[in-house]
Design a protein around this nucleic acid. Structure first.
Lengths: 237, 237
DNA sequence: GCAATGATTGAATAGACATTCAATAGAACG
DNA sequence: CGTTCTATTGAATGTCTATTCAATCATTGC
C-alpha cells in the first residue's frame, strides 16, 4: 500500500503504480526526464502483461496504467515492439544483476555462489507473479521467442556458463557419477519448471518450497557438501 | 512431404496440412462431415499457433492453412475463443491418452509405469515443436492461463495424483530421505522445464537427452531400482 | 428428378488498435 | 518577460480482424 514516489526511478518491486493524482498536490510536474517516463512506461507494461497478456497489452492500457497520455508511448519508444523488448530487457537485467553480484563476490565459496544463483531465481523481485508473466509471455508466442533470444540469449548463456563452472568445481570435491554439464542443465531446467508451477498455481507453489526442492536435489547430487534440507514435509503441506 | 489423406481424421503428427487442391481430382468432396472439418481446423490452428503465436493466429490464416474458406471457422466453432480451447483440449488429450494407456496396463510394474509417464512427456507426438508451442502459448498469456486451468487442470491433477501414487510405492521399496510428494513435484517440474528448453532451443535440446536427464534423477533418488543411465556424456555433446 | 436439408463461400460490417501529428504547455535561459 | 526547446496531449487515420449473413452448392431421402 505504499505510494510510489513521484520522482526518481519507479521501484520495480512495487509494481502497482499508483497513477499520479493531480489533485491538491501543487508540485505535480507535467514534464519529466525521459528516463523517468521510460521507467514508468516499462513498469506499466509489466503490469499490463501480467493482467492482460502481451496481445491484450495495448498502448492505451499501458499509458492509462502509467497515468500518462496515449501519445507518450510512441514518443518515448519508437514502437510497441520496442517497448516490449525494453520491458523484457529490464526484467532480465534485474535477474542478471542479482546473480552476478553474488557470483562476483570474492568472499563466497563455490558452493555458496551456486546457492546464490538459486536465491536469485526465487528472489521476490525476480520471481513475482508479474515478472514471471513477462518471462512466459515471451516464451509463449512464436514471434516473441525470437525477440527473447535476441534480447536474453547472451545473459542466459553467461549464467549457464557460470553454473557449469561452479558445478564442475563442486563435483570435483565429491564423487558423483553424473556429468556436471548434465547436472547444471537439469538444475536450470528444474528452476524453469518451478517458475512455471508458480505462475500457473501461485497459491500452491511458493518460492520457499521451490528453493527447498532445488536444494534437496543438490544434496542428493553432492551429499558431502550440501546438507539435506528438511527431509520430510511436516504434514502441513 | 507426405500428402495427407483427404478422408478420415487428419493425422495429428503430420501437422502440415496440405491444402486440398481442386485440380484434376474428380472426387474432391466439397462438403464433409463436421468432425472432419473440426479436426482440420484444429490441426491448422496448431500450425498457426506454432508459426505466429496465439495473437498472430487469425481465423483468416487458420482457414487458409486448412484450405477452407473464412466463413467455416465460425460455422464449426462458435467463436475464435472456442476454437482455441478445443485446440488445447485436443493437445492435452493426446498426452493424457498416452500416459493413461501405460498406467492402466496390468502387466507393468510401478517402476515401468512411471517410466511410461516419462515416455509420454517426450513422445514425438506430444513433444513436437508445434505441440509445445500450443502448451506454452496458453501458459504465456494471462487470459489464456485461466482457459488453461479450466480445460486442463483436471487432467493435470489426475496425472499428478498418479505420479504421486507410483512414486510413493517405488519409495517404499527404497530408503530415500526425501518426501515422495516432493519427489514427484520435482520430477514434473523438471519435465516442464525440459519442455521449455526444447521449445526455446530445439537444436540444442533433444527428446532423448531430456529423457536421460529425468532417468538420471530417478536413479539418484532410487538407486536400488533404477539403473544409472549412461553416467557420462561421450564427449560428442 | 425434386425438394429439403445442411455445408460452404466470401463480401460486408463494426470494433479495436498502433501510429501520426498539429496544437499546447511548461521549462530553461537570457 | 520573451524566446526557444522539449515534453505532452488526444483527436484523426488507416489497417487489421472477428463475426455475420445472404447467396450458392452438394447431398440425401423420396
Amino acid at each position: 500500500m505504499t505510494i510510489s514516489r513521484i520522482k526518481g526511478k519507479t521501484d520495480a518491486m512495487t509494481n502497482d503504480v499508483v497513477p499520479v493524482r493531480p489533485v491538491a498536490e501543487p508540485k505535480v510536474r507535467r514534464t519529466e526526464d525521459k528516463s523517468v517516463r521510460r521507467a514508468q512506461l516499462i513498469d506499466a507494461t509489466i503490469t499490463c502483461i501480467a493482467k492482460f497478456g502481451i496481445s491484450g497489452t495495448t498502448l492505451a492500457k499501458v499509458t492509462e496504467e502509467a497515468g500518462l497520455s496515449l501519445g507518450l508511448a510512441n514518443f518515448h519508444f519508437a514502437s510497441k515492439e520496442v517497448l516490449l523488448h525494453e520491458t523484457l530487457r529490464f526484467v532480465a537485467g534485474e535477474h542478471r544483476d542479482r546473480w552476478q553480484k553474488a557470483v562476483q563476490s570474492t568472499t563466497l565459496s563455490d558452493k555458496d555462489r551456486f546457492l546464490a544463483i538459486i536465491e536469485s531465481f526465487f528472489h521476490p523481485q525476480v520471481c513475482s507473479r508479474k515478472k514471471l508473466s513477462v518471462w512466459f509471455a515471451f516464451f509463449g508466442e512464436a514471434g516473441n521467442r525470437n525477440a527473447y533470444r535476441s534480447v536474453v540469449e547472451d545473459i542466459d548463456e553467461e549464467r549457464h556458463q557460470e553454473s557449469m563452472r561452479l558445478i564442475r568445481r563442486i563435483a570435483a570435491e565429491d564423487d558423483t557419477a553424473i556429468d556436471p554439464v548434465m547436472i547444471s542443465l537439469t538444475l536450470e531446467a528444474l528452476m524453469d519448471g518451478l517458475w512455471l508451477n508458480m505462475l500457473l498455481y501461485p497459491d500452491e507453489f511458493t518460492r520457499d518450497v521451490a528453493k527447498q526442492q532445488v536444494r534437496q536435489l543438490l544434496a542428493l547430487m553432492f551429499p558431502r557438501q550440501f546438507p539435506i534440507a528438511i527431509p520430510k514435509t511436516d504434514g502441513k503441506a
